[in-house]
């Protein structure tokens, strides 16, 4: 790649990202599920728990399967325990109100390095977007907890994208996604049964 091409591409990509975050869009998040409350926190964290459990199970399956080497293996080894920490943290927060574990299937997704990378990007992006979508619906203390976790999910997303040769930070501001949208994707891809 020539320098001109690289810079040109970078600027075009960046400009597209910048254009996508007009002030109006930036200040118009997902419609709130209602005024924040402890009861709403429980619902939201149960949804986020499903995503954290899915990620933890995915990385466990990948590490058990033995299809990974090099940078991808390092990535999975670092990220897996972090997802388990998130699961533990949310479960402790929810206590007896934690929902039952979902039925998950990552056999296909972890069968080779390419599939692993694609699925890891799917899961990390979906999880980050889900936190962004729900963040403002949480009570203040819970916002702090979500912020500490989502930053790590975004780091994972950027890391695996970089390893897969994709742009680690495709936009100047990340858009939110609804819970329905995220869960539908995981079902459609066969991760969530």
């Amino acid at each position: 790649m020539t320098r001109a091409t690289t810079r040109g591409q970078a600027l075009r990509a960046a400009a597209a990202g910048g254009a996508a975050v007009g002030v109006a869009a930036w200040l118009r998040p997902q419609p709130s599920a209602g005024k924040e409350s402890a009861a709403q926190d429980v619902k939201i964290f149960n949804f986020l728990l499903v995503l954290e459990l899915a990620q933890a199970a995915f990385y466990d399956a990948a590490l058990r399967g033995g299809a990974l080497q090099g940078d991808l293996l390092t990535y999975a080894r670092v990220v897996a325990p972090q997802e388990h920490d998130h699961v533990r943290f949310i479960r402790e927060k929810l206590g007896a109100q934690a929902g039952p574990p979902p039925k998950l299937d990552f056999r296909q997704a972890t069968s080779d390095p390419k599939r692993f990378s694609a699925a890891a990007i799917d899961l990390e992006e979906a999880t980050a977007a889900a936190y962004i979508g729900q963040g403002a619906n949480l009570t203040r203390d819970a916002v702090g907890d979500a912020a500490r976790i989502v930053a790590v999910e975004a780091r994972h997303a950027a890391w695996i994208r970089d390893l897969a040769g994709e742009d680690p930070a495709p936009r100047a501001a990340d858009p939110p996604r609804t819970a329905d949208d995220v869960l539908a994707e995981l079902r459609q891809k066969g991760y969530l049964r």
Partner: peptide, 15 residues
């Protein structure tokens, strides 16, 4: 809500 979308972008930058 908006700050969450900035936080994740900055986390991507950091990573």
């Amino acid at each position: 809500a908006a700050l969450f979308g900035l936080l994740t972008t900055e986390a991507r930058h950091a990573a």
